[in-house]
Design a protein around this nucleic acid. Structure first.
Lengths: 100, 100
DNA sequence: TTGGTATATCGGGAAATTCCGATATATCTT
DNA sequence: AAGATATATCGGAATTTCCCGATATACCAA
């Protein structure tokens, strides 16, 4: 757990927003329900639509969140699904209490 | 609590280090014991010495941590003492669990 | 008042981040 | 194989952060 890397990943309104959306994928991304479930999370395109930024930016943001360990990705065909890594948030919460 | 402001304040190795030092002022800053207690925290000069950065940089970093609500300052004569705001860390820990 | 000490603020060069458009890669369909 | 779709990566302009030296401000002591 690289603390600085994690906090940098969280230092952006859009990235925080994405993490919040991924807490309730069914509610935040109803458009995906028709094509896939939410077992593996949400695909980049759906997130991009909601974020209102370009595809490249959203893809980059998701990689950054993944490098920080906050989300994990699954490739399925031409889609990459991202979902939260809840264990990481529990760890981070604990880290804020005990180490920082 | 401005989340982005808090995470930006935490996105720097030196600032994280300062917060860690302030957890145990007596151990981290023995040099101050001769002149003052630790009720109000540690003065800027002591922190600067340990950080090994310039006075202006350390002063700026401490203001940033204060704006984020993570520390609080007390002016006493020509010294400004900074100490951790433990309540803020408890809040932040909770926020990581429930809101982010 | 004069000078010394502690801290804050200002101005700026270098490096990092933000976000974009263009392009590359991977996969699917026909 | 060729074209379409989804995502990743590249190159870069604008902005922000990092950290500095210089200067301003506040307080103290003689």
């Amino acid at each position: 757990m690289d603390q600085v890397e994690i906090f940098k990943a969280l230092s952006n309104k859009t990235r925080l927003q994405i993490l919040a959306w991924l807490k309730e994928p069914e509610i935040s991304f109803p458009g995906q329900a028709e094509h896939a479930g939410f077992e593996d999370g949400v695909c980049v395109g759906q997130i991009q639509l909601k974020a209102g930024l370009t595809q490249s930016t959203v893809s980059e943001y998701l990689s950054m969140l993944q490098r920080a360990g906050l989300v994990q990705s699954t490739r399925k065909g031409q889609w990459t699904y991202y979902k939260r890594n809840e264990a990481a948030f529990k760890q981070l919460s604990q880290l804020v209490l005990t180490e920082i």
